[in-house]
Write a protein that binds this DNA or RNA. Structure first.
Lengths: 112, 112
DNA sequence: TAAATATATGAACAATTATTCAGATAAGAG
DNA sequence: CTCTTATCTGAATAATTGTTCATATATTTA
């Protein structure tokens, strides 16, 4: 006896309306970037001001190296951008989208 | 020689304006829940309809057990709610907040 | 050119986590 | 009561990931 679906029609309809696995994967990837304390701290700090690596390390009580690693991830995810001035690299948020996403997560966190 | 801050005043000002570590941690936790393919699929499916465990397993091509584990996480995070009817447990999204968060993540994913 | 500084990087390690598997509950059907 | 079905659960495994440490690169300054 094969396994029967409890709500066959409904389940098949929903399955047909699902977004592509690729897109759902990408959406999860975006959230994954926000889902780390250090990166969230960096994002919030950059929401307040453009900052360099050592500023961010000081602000978040983390090592320069850890910050640098996380900034690379944030940059690859196109959430932050950077500009170099001499030895110093200044980072800032890429666009308003990032702030919007942060704020909605913040609202939800308040509700818990 | 102690390590000097490159932008002492700015960095200290930003540090003073930072949200509490606890709140930033909670915000990251919310995003972490969304940051998994299986959970994102569940959330999107539940956006389309109230569904039971085996429906979700069929729709997402995952085992009942894996779905059940993830639903527990989603419920603890207050992103989904459930009601029981006989042997079957029906799950649905907790509120519009969840949809809003999903949609903004989706917008960002499109831009990549 | 040599020393100092800001940032970046690769490897190793520890911690977290998603899935699987076996089995436990709970509820309806025969 | 027994069998089947839907869901849940705990332990084990495998994979991912964040930090640290040592070192490399790049730029300024002495």
């Amino acid at each position: 006896m094969g396994k029967d679906l409890i709500h066959e029609n409904l389940a098949k309809q929903v399955k047909n309306k699902m977004l592509s696995d690729d897109l759902l994967f990408d959406i999860a990837e975006v959230f994954k970037i926000f889902g780390d304390s250090t990166r969230i701290k960096i994002i919030y700090a950059l929401k307040l001001s453009e900052l360099c690596v050592s500023d961010l390390a000081f602000i978040t009580n983390t090592s320069d190296s850890a910050i640098s690693h996380q900034l690379r991830i944030l940059k690859q995810a196109k959430l932050v951008k950077s500009r170099k001035e001499g030895k110093v690299v200044y980072y800032s948020l890429k666009d308003e989208h990032v702030i919007k996403l942060f704020e909605i997560g913040r609202e939800h966190a308040y509700e818990l």
